Simulated scan of single mutants.
Amino acid sequence: MTRIDWSDGHWTNEPENVESDGDALLVTARESSDAWRTTAYGFVHDTEHALLAPLPAGTAMEVTFTGAFTGEFDQAGIFVRVDDETWTKAGVEYADGALQLGAVVTDRMSDWSVAPVAEWAGHRITVRASRAGDAVTIRARVDDEPFRLVRLAPLDPHVEVEAGPLICGPTRPGLTVRFESWTTGPSDAALH
């Protein structure tokens, strides 16, 4: 994997604060930041903080981070964006009193899936998006454990896609995440 320089990306929405910490990037979310479209809630939120760079077909991108997720819907991970109505976010989110691993896939309307990973709290988390054929495969891991499959979602092989680190603080101010690395390389050779 090859490191992507933080300065090579552009923000979808400027965070509250961004500062360097050696090779890492400390990012503080604005209160009420989130990404969601319509389903079940009836609102559209496009105030997420995502630092994006190109994700060409046949490549993968990884984001590694740590954070104290304690507010309802605090979240961090990776954002894979085609346009305002077509995107995927995946990573960890504090929901219903526990840290959850999940993904939201959006094609005009959002869906949502999560599974509890309370044991990941306080650890180093890596989320990987691999773009191959007509799909994006999302995997995640804690520390140096093997990657787990999180989601396999459709993705038009012919569209331009950008991806990168994501942070949102939907219900509170002050969520700060330490993004330790942002890397790219070849897509995964196989789904399993």
Rank of each mutant, 00 (worst) to 15 (best):
V177F: 02
R3V: 15
L149A: 08
D23S: 11
D5R: 06
F179M: 14
A115G: 09
T12S: 14
V127A: 02
E180T: 13
V105N: 11
E14S: 11
H45V: 11
F69Y: 12
L51A: 07
I4E: 04
A98E: 12
D143T: 06
T176S: 08
E145D: 15
T39W: 01
A103S: 15
T176F: 00
L155P: 09
L25H: 00
R30C: 11
S7D: 11
E16D: 15
A103T: 13
D134W: 01
A98W: 00
G67E: 05
R124A: 12
A163N: 05
V127D: 02
D21G: 06
D96G: 13
R141L: 12
D188F: 00
V82W: 01
V18G: 03
C168M: 04
A76L: 07
T38P: 00
L99G: 08
V104M: 07
T66F: 02
P116R: 04
V105D: 13
S32Y: 11
F69V: 15
T88I: 15
R131V: 09
T38H: 03
G42R: 04
W11E: 04
V44D: 15
A115F: 01
D156N: 12
T64S: 13
V92A: 03
F69N: 13
G67T: 09
D83V: 08
E85G: 10
D83N: 14
H158G: 11
V104C: 13
T176C: 03
R30M: 09
D83Y: 02
I78G: 04
Q100D: 05
P116G: 07
A76Q: 10
S110N: 08
V117S: 03
F179L: 14
A24R: 05
T88L: 15
H45F: 12
V82F: 00
A95G: 04
C168W: 01
A90V: 03
L149Q: 06
P56C: 12
I167W: 00
M109E: 14
D5E: 12
V150L: 12
A140I: 15
T88A: 09
E180S: 10
A57E: 09
A40K: 14
E93Q: 07
Q75P: 04
Q100E: 09
R124S: 15
L25G: 01
P173D: 07
A29K: 06
A68H: 08
R131P: 10
A57G: 06
M61Q: 13
L99S: 08
F147Y: 12
T47H: 03
N13M: 10
I4T: 03
D111L: 08
T2C: 00
R30Q: 14
T12R: 05
H10Y: 14
V92H: 07
D23N: 10
P165W: 00
D156T: 07
R81N: 07
L152C: 10
V92C: 09
Y41T: 13
T137P: 03
P15R: 08
W120C: 05
T106Q: 06
S181F: 02
P56S: 11
A115C: 07
N13Q: 11
V44N: 11
T183M: 08
